[in-house]
Amino acid sequence: MHEWALAEAVIKTVSQIAEKEGLDNVSEVNIRLGELQQVDVEIFKFALSQLKAPKLEKAQFNIRRDEAKLRCRVCSYEWTFSSVELDEEAREAVHFVPEIAHAFMKCPRCGSPDFEVVSGRGVWIESVKGVKRHG
């Protein structure tokens, strides 16, 4: 996902969570960032700072990288995304649509394209902390 679109998604979702939880101010947002998407963290952080919504002005965004691990559904072999050499075109495609990895990658052991992403896919909001509304 594009860094700005991703940041927009996070801000919108955190605002909804804050509303639902009755938070006046959000102080901390913990985000898990999957390696598969190769998000540029600096651009992502910058986008988050620019897009801040009213209740998120003082929020601190903690970003944790999640290593991408893959497992073959045919032979059960496991490998990491970082161990695979992909050209620029493939990396770019996987950046936008991580599932496209199935068009470019195969199991290093048996050659099957039928593998699953065990970890490191997508962006997740792990937790949102803040000050509750009084009354």
Partner: peptide
């Protein structure tokens, strides 16, 4: 279209992977 990313390669996707790709493209 997915062809911007997959080109003329086969994209063998299972159901959950299809859903994830669709959600991704709808979101961006």
């Amino acid at each position: 279209s997915i062809i911007y990313y997959a080109g003329d390669r086969a994209s063998p996707l299972r159901g959950a992977e299809f859903s994830n790709a669709l959600i991704e493209l709808l979101a961006v």
